[in-house]
Design a protein around this nucleic acid. Structure first.
Lengths: 341, 341
DNA sequence: GGTCCTGTCCAAAGCGCTTTTGTAACAGCC
DNA sequence: GGCTGTTACAAAAGCGCTTTGGACAGGACC
C-alpha cells in the first residue's frame, strides 16, 4: 500500500492524504479522520526512502566504529551506550546506523556519509587528545555530538562527558579521609582523554594534601581483568605497597580484587579499592550493599542524552553548542574501609 | 555534486554517466575512463536515498534489540557480534541499522521495517524456544538469518549456531577423562536455546558413562560474575562438593574462580573448570597458556558469517536455506587438571 | 543498394513521497 | 453585484537516481 493507492481508495489526491497525515491545517478535521482511519486500517507507512529523497533528510544518525587493521575496537561500553542512544532515537523517530570503518579511512567515511546523504548527523566516540575529527566534521558540515572531550582542541563543539577529574579527585579524597596515604592508580590507556583526566584528578587530590606522587603506584593499559590483576599484584609486591587502589573499570576491578585475595588480604579491610562504574547492564552489582565502592555514572544514560543532543543539533544546526558534564555519584560499597595502621 | 551536474560537466547524458559508473557494457571503455576520472576528481557519490528509491533496495540490514520495559536487553555478546557483522557489511557495500524496540512491539517493528522499505534484510538474535519470530518473518517476506536456533520450530530457515551440545559434551568428557565424577554446571538461563542445548550435552556425556545426574550440581541464571561466584560457592559448600565446573561464559568464570580461591582451593589443581569462551575482545586472555580451559568459538566470526548469510538470502530470496554449525575448539588452559583423589 | 547487426549514446519515464502553486466554493462586506 | 478573504482540496513539479526503449552511425553481408 503506497500513497497513490491509498489516495485513490479514498477518492482524494495524494497531496491531501499526505498533508492530512502530516498534520497540516489546510485539511478539514473530518477528512483527516477519514484518512487516518484508512491509513490505520491498511497499515500504511510512508516509504522511508521516498520521504528522505523528497525532504532531503534521512532521519538516520550514524555511529562509527573505527577498525584497526583486522580488529574492530570494541569497547565494553559500546553495547550499553548504543542501547541508550537507541532508546532516544526510536522515541524521536530516528534510526541508528552503525558503520565499521578502517581507522585510516575515517575521514573519507565521514565525507562519504555526507555526500551520499546517508545520515543527518553523527555521534563521535572515544575522542583522543587533539582529536582531528572535530575540525574535519565542522568542515564537512555534518551535525555531530561527541561522547567525551578532546583535550587540546580550542574549537567549540557539542559534547557530553562525565566529570572524570572530579570523580577521581573525590574518590582519592575519600580514600585519604579513611587514612590511606599510598594509593595505587590502575588507569586506562592515557592516550584516551578520559584516562588522562582521571589521572589529573588523582594527582590533584594527592597534591592538595601534600602527598608525593609516586610513579611506582601508577599503571595504565587497556582495561582487562588480567591487566587489573597484574597491576595490583605487582604493586602489592613492592616494598612499600599501597593500602588502596583507584581503578578505572569494573572489569579491571575484578582482577584487582583477585590479586588482593591471592595475596592473602581482605578487600575492604586490609586493602581498599574504588572503581569507576559505568553501570554496564551485564556487570551490574545486584547486592543490597554493592560489592565495590565506585564513582558511578550510567553510560546508557549518556547514550540517551547524547542522542538527544545530536537531534537538537540537526534541528538547529546554527544554534549554540551545548556541553553537558555529568557528575559521577560516589557510591559506598564493601570494598573500602579505614586504612590499616 | 550530483549526477546531473556531473553529466553536464562531462557533456554526457545522466544515463551514460550512471551506466558508466555502474559497469554496464554499453559504454565504451574510453568514455568510462573519462567518467570515472571526473567522478573521482569531484568525489562524486551517488545519493543513497535516490538510488534506493530507484532500485527498490536500500542496501541496509537491520538488527533488532528487544527492550523489556525500560531496560534494553544488552548482551555482552552484542558488541563483538555487531563488530563482526559490520566488517562484512562494509566490505559488501551494505549498511547496518540497529533498532531498539519494545519486546511487545517486535512484531510490529518487523512489519514496519518492511512497509517503510527501511531494510533489505534482518538478523534475528537470541532465539528463544519455539520462537514465534520465524513464522512471522516468513509471513512478512523479509529475508533474514538467525543467530542460534529455535528449538521447537519445524520450519526451514537459515541459521548459524555454535554446536553447543557437542561443545559441552566434549568438555564434560574431557573432565571425566581427567577423573572428575562430580561436575557442577553453571549454566545460562535455560529459556535461551543455547543454554538448553548445553545442558543436554552435559547430561548426555554423563549418562554415556553411567554417571547419575545430580540436580544439586546444576544452576542456571543470567551470566554475571556474581552469579558465577554464588553458584560455585554454594556447590562447593555442599557435603559432596564437585571437583570440577562447567561454566557458560568467561564473566561467570571469573566469579567461579573467585569462589574457588576463597574456599582456599587452587583452580586447576584442587578444582577444575572449563568455560565457554566467546572470545570477546575486551575479555581476551593474553597469556601464553590461557588461564581458562575453554570451549572456544568467536562470536565476532559468527557475526561476519551471519552477515554474509543474510546478504546471500537478499541476493537469492528463493534459494535453499543454509545452516551453519560452528564447532567450538576445546582449548586447554591452566584451569583444569586431574581430579584429586 | 538494402538489410541487419553492433557498438554507443540519450530522452524520458518512473521510484513514492513532499511541497509549491493554484483553484474552486463559499461567506462576509460594502 | 463586485470585491476580498478564508477554507478545503488538487495538479504538477521536483528530490537524484536507475532503467526502458529507442536512435543513430558505421560496418558487414548479401
Amino acid at each position: 500500500m503506497n500513497l497513490k493507492q491509498l489516495s485513490e481508495l479514498l477518492g482524494l489526491s495524494q497531496t491531501t492524504v499526505s498533508r492530512a497525515l502530516n498534520g497540516y491545517t489546510d485539511v478539514s478535521e473530518a477528512t483527516r479522520a477519514r484518512v487516518r482511519a484508512a491509513a490505520e486500517a491498511h497499515d500504511y507507512r510512508p516509504n522511508t526512502r521516498a520521504r528522505a529523497l523528497a525532504t532531503g533528510r534521512s532521519r538516520v544518525i550514524g555511529h562509527v566504529i573505527p577498525k584497526i587493521s583486522s580488529h574492530a575496537m570494541v569497547n565494553p561500553i559500546f553495547a550499553d551506550f548504543i542501547a541508550g542512544a537507541g532508546e532516544t532515537y526510536s522515541s524521536a523517530g530516528y534510526e541508528m546506523l552503525i558503520s565499521v570503518v578502517d581507522l585510516a579511512q575515517e575521514e573519507k567515511a565521514y565525507l562519504s556519509m555526507k555526500r551520499r546523504g546517508l545520515v543527518d548527523g553523527l555521534i563521535v566516540s572515544a575522542p583522543r587528545m587533539n582529536d582531528p575529527r572535530i575540525a574535519l566534521l565542522d568542515g564537512i558540515g555534518l551535525p555531530y555530538a561527541v561522547h567525551g572531550r578532546a583535550t587540546g582542541t580550542d574549537r567549540q563543539y557539542s559534547w557530553l562527558d562525565v566529570n572524570n577529574r572530579r570523580a577521581f579527585t573525590r574518590a582519592t579524597d575519600f580514600l585519604m579521609d579513611l587514612g590511606h596515604r599510598r594509593i595505587g592508580l590502575v588507569n586506562g590507556l592515557e592516550t584516551m582523554d578520559f584516562a588522562h583526566r582521571r589521572r589529573q584528578g588523582y594527582e590533584e587530590a594527592l597534591r592538595a594534601r601534600g602527598i608525593a606522587i609516586d610513579p611506582n603506584l601508577m599503571r595504565q593499559d587497556e582495561m582487562t581483568e588480567g591487566y587489573g590483576w597484574r597491576a595490583a599484584r605487582d604493586m602489592l609486591a613492592q616494598p612499600d605497597p599501597p593500602t588502596a587502589f583507584l581503578v578505572s573499570s569494573v572489569i579491571c576491578m575484578l582482577g584487582v580484587r583477585r590479586a588482593i585475595e591471592e595475596a592473602g588480604l581482605v578487600l575492604g579491610r586490609d586493602v581498599s579499592a574504588v572503581t569507576h562504574d559505568d553501570q554496564l547492564s551485564y556487570l551490574r552489582d545486584d547486592g543490597a550493599v554493592p560489592a565495590f565502592t565506585a564513582t558511578r555514572s550510567s553510560v546508557r544514560e549518556a547514550g540517551q542524552r547524547l542522542a538527544r543532543m545530536v537531534i537538537d543539533r540537526i534541528d538547529n544546526p546554527e544554534g549554540p553548542h551545548v556541553q553537558e558534564l555529568l557528575e559521577a555519584e560516589l557510591i559506598i560499597g564493601r570494598s573500602t574501609g579505614p586504612a590499616p595502621r
